[in-house]
Lab assay of single mutants.
Amino acid sequence: EGEAHRVLFGFVPETKEELQVMPGNIVFVLKKGNDNWATVMFNGQKGLVPCNYLEPVELR
């Protein structure tokens, strides 16, 4: 579910809505907001990550 994206930079959450991710993680974007935040799914957890920390990736 969602579009696959690769994480470019590590992100440490500052609020409980945000999700910690590391460079190279593959996350699935469920929704992109107008505020430059994306709702993503990673390892069964859902949370917010900055859009500019993500790049689309083709999964084969």
Rank of each mutant, 00 (worst) to 15 (best):
M22R: 15
L19Q: 02
V12Y: 13
L8R: 12
M22L: 12
R6N: 04
G33W: 11
F42I: 04
R6M: 08
G33D: 14
G2E: 07
G2N: 04
V21Y: 02
G33Y: 11
I26V: 11
L8H: 01
L59P: 15
N36F: 05
P13C: 05
L30K: 09
N43Y: 05
H5N: 06
K46F: 07
E58Y: 07
L19Y: 00
N52M: 11
K32M: 08
L19T: 01
G10W: 09
F42P: 02
L30G: 05
E3C: 11
A4Y: 12
V27W: 00
L54T: 00
N43F: 02
N52L: 06
H5A: 09
N43D: 09
F42D: 05
A4Q: 11
K16G: 11
V27Q: 03
N34D: 15
G2K: 03
W37P: 02
L19I: 14
A38L: 02
E17K: 13
E58K: 14
L8F: 00
G47E: 02
D35K: 07
E58T: 13
N52V: 07
G44K: 08
N36T: 07
V57P: 02
P23I: 03
G33I: 10
P56Q: 08
V57E: 03
V29Q: 01
N34L: 13
E58S: 13
K31H: 15
L59C: 15
V12M: 12
E3Q: 15
V49C: 04
Q45F: 08
V49E: 00
A38S: 07
N52A: 12
F42K: 08
P56R: 11
R6F: 05
V27G: 01
C51L: 11
A38F: 03
K46G: 04
L30Y: 03
V40N: 04
E18R: 13
A4M: 11
H5W: 02
C51A: 12
N43L: 03
E3R: 10
V40W: 03
L19V: 07
N52R: 13
G47L: 07
R60C: 14
L30P: 01
V27D: 03
I26R: 05
K31D: 10
A38P: 02
N52T: 11
L30I: 10
E17C: 10
E17I: 07
N36C: 06
E1C: 09
V29Y: 01
P50K: 08
A38C: 07
R60N: 08
V49Y: 04
V7Y: 00
L30V: 10
E55R: 08
V21K: 00
E3A: 10
P50Y: 01
G10A: 15
L54V: 04
F9D: 15
W37A: 08
T39W: 09
K16I: 10
N34Q: 15
F9Q: 15
E1M: 12
G33F: 10
P56G: 04
F42T: 04
P23L: 02
G44F: 00
D35G: 10
V57K: 02
N34S: 15
E14D: 10
V21N: 07
N25S: 11
V49G: 02
T15K: 12
N52I: 05
V12N: 14
F42G: 05
W37D: 06
F9H: 14
P56T: 04
P23Q: 08
I26W: 01
N36D: 10
A38H: 01
Q20P: 09
L59N: 14
E58M: 09
E3M: 11
F11C: 06
V29L: 11
V21G: 02
W37H: 07
K31L: 06
P23H: 06
I26A: 05
M41V: 14
Q20T: 09
V29H: 05
K46C: 13
K31M: 09
F42E: 04
H5V: 03
Y53P: 06
V21M: 01
Q45K: 12
P13Q: 04
V7G: 03
G47N: 06
T39Q: 12
P50R: 06
G47Y: 02
P13V: 04
C51E: 05
I26P: 04
W37N: 12
G2Q: 05
G47Q: 01
V29C: 09
L54N: 00
Q20N: 09
D35S: 09
